[in-house]
Nucleic acid binder design. Sequence first.
DNA 1: ATCAAATTTCAGAAAATACTGAAAATTCGG
DNA 2: CCGAATTTTCAGTATTTTCTGAAATTTGAT
Lengths: 181, 181
Amino acid sequence: MTPLVHAFVAHFGEMGSRWGINRTVGQIYALIFVSPRPLCADEIAETLSYSRSNVSMGLKELQSWRLVKLRHMPGDRREYFDAPTDAWEIFRTLAEERRRREMEPTLSMLRSALLETPSSDEDRVAQERMKGMHDLIELMSNWFDDVQRLDAQTLAKLMRMGARVQKLLELTGQLKPGTKE
Amino acid sequence: MTPLVHAFVAHFGEMGSRWGINRTVGQIYALIFVSPRPLCADEIAETLSYSRSNVSMGLKELQSWRLVKLRHMPGDRREYFDAPTDAWEIFRTLAEERRRREMEPTLSMLRSALLETPSSDEDRVAQERMKGMHDLIELMSNWFDDVQRLDAQTLAKLMRMGARVQKLLELTGQLKPGTKE
DNA sequence: ATCAAATTTCAGAAAATACTGAAAATTCGG
DNA sequence: CCGAATTTTCAGTATTTTCTGAAATTTGAT
């Protein structure tokens, strides 16, 4: 590993826990991401000094996140892995997986909590707040869904417009501030 | 705790680790969020059966996330805590803190990695990929910044428009698909 | 200033998570 | 279908993180 790659891999190892993956998984991903060619488990284990079995589990985890893809090299039975390099594609995948893992379970818990008949004033207050949370999460979830369908270029343009989008829409009369709904 | 509140608190405890906070912190937050009045550390420790010191640390953590606010009750020297109930405000806070904790460190690592002179073809490939990642993270970061400034109502409207925003902007001629930049 | 009430700190215990090596299972060329 | 190459599983160990209780510190009313 060159010093440049080493620094990148180490950073992903350190950040891993903040991102909800562990050190090994972070480092494996980083290594595959910058590698000019697909890597097999043995090479990864060797490079990062992790046991073969740990790398195997890490690769499973990365596959479940859809962050790495399984490849086969002609005349070699080993499994090789590479990672999408298009940042937008990675972002889409991550957003989708995070929604699925971090938002959906909460959304369904909230949905059923809101169906319960409140047994006290406390419960009524609690349900009110859960309603606010539920509605926002649902809105965000649907928005994500929607926006996922735009192509990367359009999305990039919209992002570069940022808040100016609002001004523009006001002009078209589609978005009048101060109007309900 | 009523069964309704209990279910909510338990869910936040379980999801905590996925969200980058621990079980205690998740439960403390959930409890404060649905409570009709501010709570003091002792009440929280009592209700959740955690030690007083654990609750103290959890509250520190929640304050560092700006998810709970310190309050004082007249004639009582204990510290009470409540949480913003406006879902949009919570979302803004979370987005900002997550950017700060999960994106900024990586952005600065990438910035310095991109300043290095590549020592090989491997490094050149690695830098190319890091550039793609850097540019997207930076774009998202700036977009967040920008969008944070819009008021909740406008933001909600924009989200409800979702992908339709694109169609509308095409009409105004501000966003022509297939045009570079 | 004093002192009791309240909060924080921190070293060590408990719990959860990550990692390894050996054994089991799978895969595929012959 | 045999057997070597490869991957996966899993029980046990190591590491990290969380949690507690006791002691130290801070706070504010008198």
